[in-house]
């Protein structure tokens, strides 16, 4: 049960905490920039993934678990979510076909 012999220090947690809040602030800055929605989306997504990565690695202690746990869990979730990207072809197509729908 006490698998994580070495504890992450409080300073480390603080750093990650500040980093997550800074990234959230950065996202707001990006949101108000005058670029098209697609670019905003991509930047938001990348920053959110970085945030999530920080949270999983440090807050959820994935760093101090056995490597196999991460290899068992994370690829499964990422793979399934990645496969859902096949939805987009139809969502954009729906927009193109819209005039005919009426």
């Amino acid at each position: 049960m006490n698998s994580s012999g070495h504890q992450s220090s409080l300073t480390m947690y603080l750093l990650v905490y500040v980093a997550i809040l800074v990234i959230s602030a950065l996202q707001i800055l990006i949101a108000y920039q005058n670029i098209d929605a697609y670019r905003i989306f991509i930047r938001m997504l990348l920053l959110a993934i970085v945030q999530a990565g920080l949270a999983v690695t440090f807050f959820m202690h994935m760093r101090s678990e056995k490597r196999t746990l991460a290899l068992f869990l994370l690829p499964a979730a990422v793979f399934v979510l990645a496969m859902m990207n096949m939805f987009w072809y139809d969502s954009f197509r729906l927009l193109d076909m819209r005039p005919f729908a009426h």
């Binding site: 997550i20 949101a31 989306f41 938001m44 949270a55």
Partner: peptide, 13 residues
Amino acid sequence: LVWMFVVPFVYLL
């Protein structure tokens, strides 16, 4: 962690 995805996509976009 979920909230970190909800804020940018639901609010900021």
